[in-house]
Amino acid sequence: MSQYLILIYEDETQYASATPELFGEILQEHNQFAAQVEQRGVKLLGGAALQPTGTATSVRGSEVTDGPFAETKEALGGYYLIDAPDLDAALAVGKLCPARFGGVEVRPVMTFD
């Protein structure tokens, strides 16, 4: 088994204008996702949703600046950490992951052993 990080990149403005009903729907999707992942022999080790990039602060050396590291149309908005047998299994989970306003990036986690 190997760990992969699923990074969720989406258009934040879509969330800024979303109704509470839509938020509820998306939350529901994420709950269903968690259940489906476990059924596929993949372990969900963790995950979180992030506050919008407007709340981000970048630090480079001692210099502190307001905003995310890089301004992009689709910004990192959340992640899941999974344990999967191989990339095919990880990509299958990536395809299941809710990201209606963008997509996800699947990255293998480096191991030191």
């Binding site: 190997s2 047998p85 191989d86 990339l87 095919d88 293998p108």
Partner: peptide, 13 residues
């Protein structure tokens, strides 16, 4: 590093 599997894909894939 990304562990692309060395195997024949399942019938579905």
């Amino acid at each position: 590093l990304a562990r692309i599997p060395y195997r024949v894909p399942s019938a579905a894939e």
